[in-house]
């Protein structure tokens, strides 16, 4: 009787596991199949026409890429420096405990709350207005905890012997970090940062109030300009434009998913490479 209930539980687990895996695979295939129907060269290379009912999504693609680069510009230097502080300089104590607490909590703040923060600080108080700069800063702050955590993990994995060898040659702490430790940890740091950026790339809520525009059929001109972005474009055409053909919605979703996943898997590959070498 005992063994019977063991087998029943194991069977249930197996079924649930394959249910999740099957649903996931089905979902991806479904989006791909539906999206490819609406996909064309024009779709990814032309300006939108007629409230997105025709033409392409080029400005949204470019906007998303520029926005993500802007986010990287904000978050990577700050995040890496903070990670270096935590692993290489800080001694355990109240300051480090506070920083750790801050990282944990920043990681848990809902993205829409980052949006409010960005609205109050960057858009209004710093008078950047709704712009690429304000949105990049907002997403940058949101991505910080991911970059810091990735940096810490990568730095902690640098072998002690490697540092000691550098110190033994008379290098200073700064030199050891800049010329030995960081280069060694590079792929881990870059991989972790890309992972964070891939999440930022798919975010809609924080840019909703900090600078994204639905209808701006030209490419962004500078940090002060407003911009289109794929996630927001997708949201609008899916919910606000009557008569939008589903094929266009799925094609937009597939484009966004493709960009996010490319970054995501590049990140995973780099991190694995970092662990191997």
């Amino acid at each position: 009787m005992n063994r019977f209930h063991e087998r029943a539980v194991n069977a249930l687990l197996t079924v649930l596991f394959w249910l999740v895996i099957g649903t996931t695979a089905g979902l991806i295939l479904f989006i791909a199949a539906r999206g490819i129907k609406g996909m064309s060269w024009e779709f990814v290379s032309a300006m939108p026409r007629d409230r997105g009912l025709a033409g392409g999504v080029l400005p949204a693609i470019v906007g998303t890429l520029v926005l993500t680069s802007g986010t990287a510009l904000v978050t990577v230097p700050l995040g890496v420096l903070a990670g270096v502080y935590l692993t290489e300089y800080a001694r355990p104590g109240p300051a480090v405990r506070l920083v750790n607490l801050a990282i944990v909590n920043l990681a848990g703040v809902p993205s829409i709350v980052y949006g409010l923060f960005g609205l109050a600080v960057f858009v209004l108080s710093l008078r950047l207005g709704p712009s690429l700069a304000a949105a990049s800063l907002t997403l940058g702050v949101m991505t910080l905890p991911v970059v810091v955590t990735a940096t810490r993990e990568a730095l902690a994995a640098v072998p002690v012997a490697y540092r000691e060898a550098a110190y033994a040659l008379g290098a200073s702490r700064r030199q050891v970090i800049l010329t030995h430790v960081l280069p060694y940890a590079k792929s881990g740091i870059v991989g972790g940062s890309l992972l964070g950026l891939s999440r930022a790339m798919g975010e809609t809520a924080p840019i909703l109030v900090t600078g994204v525009a639905f209808w701006l059929p030209r490419l962004p001109t500078g940090p002060a300009s407003r911009f289109m972005a794929l996630p927001y474009h997708l949201y609008i055409i899916a919910t606000q434009v009557p008569g939008m053909p589903p094929a266009r919605i799925w094609a937009t979703a597939l484009t966004l998913l493709g960009l996010v996943m490319a970054l995501n898997f590049a990140a995973a590959g780099l991190r694995r490479y970092g662990k191997g070498g």
Partner: peptide, 14 residues
């Protein structure tokens, strides 16, 4: 990883 990486707006469309 993919499931975790799908942007929430895409989940919204689904």
């Amino acid at each position: 990883t993919t499931l975790a990486g799908i942007p929430s707006v895409v989940y919204g469309v689904i």
